[in-house]
Amino acid sequence: MGLPERETVTSAPVPLLQATDVATVFRTPRGAMRAVDGVSLSLARGETLGIVGESGSGKSVLGRTLMGLITDGPETSVTGSVLLGGNDVHALTPAGRRTLWGTEVAMVFQDPMTSLNPVKKIGRHLSESVRLHLGLSRAESRDRAVDLLCQVGIPEPARRAGQYPHELSGGMRQRVVIAMALACGPRLLIADEPTTALDVTVQKQILDLLQSLGEELRMATILISHDLGTIAGRTDRVAVMYAGRLVEHARTAEVFDNPRHPYSRALIASIPHLDLSPHTLLPAIEGRPPNLLNPPAGCRFAPRCVVATDLCTTQSPALTGRAGDDTGGAVACHHPLGAAKEATV
């Protein structure tokens, strides 16, 4: 299918996004909170990546740090580097970063009920960014706003443009938020749990919309979710995040078929299936995620891991290539699953 295409994409000299050893630490009154801890990622033009992890694992903070919405400052320390289209996001001036936002990278937020300004009409949400970045006139930007609403599948776009956010349903509002992100044709879209706040019936529509827009506009996408199920079949690769770190990173199908990290396997086991009868109790992952103010030594998953050993509680496993895997997958575990099986083959 997309294979030859991907080759041309990856042969580009500079990847669209190149994050190296990114760490985001909040200085809180109770101590340093390591929300993102040494994450490296890269993304080619048009490629799609899923980031999955439990609530509080640092997905949103990572997304915002990649974009430069969270920067180094008095209350936060950001280290490592993020190259976006060749620009070092965190070395730019605030004004320099703002020129990237909307045009190079854009974000879709989790809750469409709160990410639109209640006192601004829908049309203005869209027209103001095209006026700012593309320098369109008032009339042109109004037309562009209606086009954008049409593009994200909003019926009667001209009428909707004149309405306020509260006059639209949740699904419609999320379409507006997506249109807002698309307004200036970004090359990277970061969608931070774009469907978590929506009805189940609407979730699939929004995910389908994001996927088709991504393909149509050849836009690289990072889809953040706490639910591996939303990402299944929708992204090229998946990065599994646990307590601020990437614990597994591989082709999406690989992770599903052959998870190497015990946490990835537990996540897969907790995906709800449509063929389950309603109210089936899903196997939740035992225990709680670690306190990021004072994370455990060694592997952060160790207190909840069924195969943990002494090594795990003393030494932190590095993210390394998966044994017997030539697709570029990596896992951070002293005792990856399936490794023994590989050895016997």
Binding site: L69, R98, W101, G102, F109, S115, P118, E128, V177
Partner: peptide
């Protein structure tokens, strides 16, 4: 959130 969203637009 809508302030963060406005920032993310480059305002």
């Amino acid at each position: 959130d809508f302030i963060l969203a406005a920032r993310a637009k480059g305002m």
